[in-house]
Design a protein around this nucleic acid. Sequence first.
DNA 1: GTCAATGCAAATGGTTTGCAAGCTC
DNA 2: GAGCTTGCAAACCATTTGCATTGAC
Lengths: 143, 143
Amino acid sequence: MVTNMKFKRYSKQREAIYRALQERRDHPTAETLYLSLKQAQPTLSLATVYRNLNQLEHSGHILRLSFDVDRYDGNVAPHPHFFCTCCRNLADLNLPINDTLDEMVSKMGYHVARHDLIFRGTCFSCAKRESAQTDVCGSSRLP
Amino acid sequence: MVTNMKFKRYSKQREAIYRALQERRDHPTAETLYLSLKQAQPTLSLATVYRNLNQLEHSGHILRLSFDVDRYDGNVAPHPHFFCTCCRNLADLNLPINDTLDEMVSKMGYHVARHDLIFRGTCFSCAKRESAQTDVCGSSRLP
DNA sequence: GTCAATGCAAATGGTTTGCAAGCTC
DNA sequence: GAGCTTGCAAACCATTTGCATTGAC
């Protein structure tokens, strides 16, 4: 495997899932990941993807981000995200405040393991389309 | 209703759901809310709770927080939360950084509607129990 | 050879929806 | 009375699980 991950057994499925998450920047859902990996490995099963994502999360190699449909991130270093409620893109943000945040809460006496900071709104391209045309993404869509 | 909410029609179910969320501090799930309200209103249906929670969210009166099981918050003012991965309690935190965060991201050019800042770890009582006894909440539980 | 990992299909469980009856205005 | 809202049951769908088979060590 890419790095020594000390799982009970090696599997090429897990390898592919982990590598894809390292290479992608789009924080895919399990199904998105499954569909893209299935092209190279047509026998791949969605259950296997879910099982490996859970294993990789438990072992601390990836992060699960809770949304209506969960997203996965191969970058376990704390960093904020921006979720566009129009196109449903999830992007990394670069704010130099991650450690600061954990320290603030640790000082209050909590045992902080991690945090999630997710901004919601409209991304550049959706905002542009919305101002040009009318109601691109449906006003009913919620943050 | 408690405040003028301009819904198409008044309903005592919606009133009860909204009031409960204003009074509670525990960010309940739909089912928790349903079970507690059902005592005073035995004919209440879980579907009605979900429908009203969605309406109240769309109208901006409450917030939905995505977890494995969603939580609801009657306080729509931005404020961070602490989720205990042991007892699954979700508590409010008081950090004076909410506006600062939105401003930082707005200055980057994003149209920010809101943000969620959720710390995960162990709360006071679970940490105490864990250090006293052994493995109170099961080491397999994830943030 | 052992036993973890897979693929498939079935189950699970939180959330949504169709519909007839009940309310609000 | 029009039509939003409810309650019930059924549907939905993301995720998990049972089981026989495959594959790593």
